[in-house]
Amino acid sequence: MLRYRGGERGAFETLYGRHKDALYRYLLRGCARPEIAAELFQEVWASLIRSRERYEPRAKFTTWLYRLAHHRLIDHLRLAPRAPQALDEIVEPAAAEHERPDAQALASERGARLHAALAALPLEQREAFLLHEEGELTLEQIADITGVGRETVKSRLRYALVKLREALADV
């Protein structure tokens, strides 16, 4: 990020290639809508690009990136709230063009059930799970991003794991 701020042409491409897929998945699983996920994805990177002059390496870049993404996602969900969906109503987001047909062919029933159970989780638990799985963040970093204590994050993760295991129990 510092190299990109200094005007190095290829620095951003390296940074982007390193984090783009995980961030996209975080947003996609967080809002469960590809078009919304794509919009939020662009907003996050545009915000990062515009604020590059203010970036200071006080924290890990991943923490900064997912903090931006977390705020965007929360803002979107607060503006467009929707009732929690029942497990059998969960529709797996349509795969992108480049994912067909391989991605669909490889998607097992276990994966579909896992995604459905993840979408059914409360927002806080889903956020904690995704920040750890996609962002590879620690409890402290998740707590910092979400603005809660470390033990709260642990509690949210415990409940999320229980619900996900239950959803996959009979598969």
Binding site: Y16, W45, A96, H115
Partner: peptide, 17 residues
Amino acid sequence: EASGDTRTPPALDQAVL
């Protein structure tokens, strides 16, 4: 395993870059 194949659409990559 279930999410590993989910990647950013190329059009989205191009727009951001």
